[in-house]
């Protein structure tokens, strides 16, 4: 039985379609990534799964049931914004939530201490929330979501607003969670970091699923390295010629940005600069990731927080 089955879901907000004939199947026991830029429908989908709102059309089944408040007993949620009570301790935050899910005070403490240790927060049970860093708070929220041992965990942008060191700790904690049949759905626009964590993922764009599969499947067809070029005057004939070079796997262009996947960037990049009239203003080279796969499948690059940032 899949954890979540969505078939042709439509969810509109006035004239805007948050989800547009959205179809997705998430198996049990995996870490599944909902990957896409802001506004692609990730949070809308999580909201429907949590039963906070209902689809206008289509079918959504969570553990073969309609999403309803009673089903939340099997779910843990981490929202994009902070949801810790800042004037109490870590333990008090865990306790009030755990007890609402049927745990006793003693169970909250025992399990809370264990989980905090797993998330690198040993001895923080009695610490005031106000003394924790943003990344620590986010890990406490993850512990709280796991406290009642849910079958399904929904994480919305778990590393947004967190500094790089803490982000790494969060993704490591996420990757280290014992699966034990639990399904984790993580919505993020950080495709590079999600690459090493997710067992499977869906690329979302404008409320639709553009592609779905394991990271390896999504990256199939890409070469070893990705070359991103800021190339405003790229001509179609030039790109066709580049695509025919022996070490180039794919060429995708959109709005002044060109992405190539190649076997060996050091041999390809100098040749690009020798193309007559090529006005290449920036180059970025890195091992091919889900971000490259997103561009490859969806045909547009992921929106970055800073659209003016150089490649």
């Amino acid at each position: 039985m899949p954890a979540i089955e969505a078939e042709g879901i439509v969810r509109s907000y006035g004239d805007h379609r948050g989800l547009d004939r959205f179809t997705l199947l998430i198996p049990t026991g995996c870490i599944f990534g909902l990957l896409g830029p802001n506004g692609s429908g990730k949070s809308t989908f999580l909201s429907l799964v949590a039963g906070a709102e209902r689809p206008d059309d289509g079918t959504l089944r969570v553990f073969d049931s309609d999403p309803a408040p009673a089903l939340r007993r099997r779910m843990g949620m981490v929202f994009q914004e902070s949801t810790l009570d800042p004037v109490t301790t870590v333990g008090e935050n865990l306790e009030v939530a755990g007890r609402l899910f049927g745990l006793t005070r003693a169970m909250c403490r025992k399990r809370g201490v264990e989980l905090l240790e797993q998330f690198g927060l040993a001895d923080r049970y009695d610490a005031p929330v106000a003394q924790l860093s943003g990344g620590m708070r986010r890990r406490v929220e993850m512990v709280r979501a796991l406290l009642h041992d849910p079958d399904l965990v929904l994480l919305d942008e778990p590393t947004t607003g967190i500094d790089p060191g803490e982000r790494q700790a969060i993704w490591e904690a996420l990757a280290a969670w014992p699966a034990s049949g639990r399904t984790v759905v993580v919505a993020t626009n950080d495709l590079v970091e999600a690459d090493g964590v997710c067992d499977a993922a869906a690329f979302l764009r404008e409320g639709c699923v553009a592609a779905m599969g394991t990271p390896a499947e999504l990256k199939a067809g890409l070469q070893r390295e990705a070359v991103w070029l800021e190339w405003p005057n790229a001509q179609e004939s030039d790109l066709e010629a580049v695509w025919k070079w022996s070490s180039v796997g794919s060429v995708t262009a959109e709005d002044g940005t060109v992405q190539l996947t190649v076997d060996d960037a050091t041999s390809v990049v100098p040749r690009l600069f020798r193309i007559p009239g090529a006005d290449i203003r920036g180059v970025r080279i890195h091992p091919a990731t889900l971000e490259d796969a997103y561009f490859h499948h969806v045909g547009v690059p992921m929106a970055h927080d800073d659209p003016e940032a150089p490649l």
């Binding site: 408040p69 939340r72 929202f79 949801t83 810790l84 935050n93």
Partner: peptide
């Protein structure tokens, strides 16, 4: 509770 966000945690519990 609304502004700190913890009200959402209460409301995300199985209780009405």
């Amino acid at each position: 509770d609304r502004d700190s966000g913890i009200l959402r945690i209460f409301l995300s519990s199985p209780h009405p």
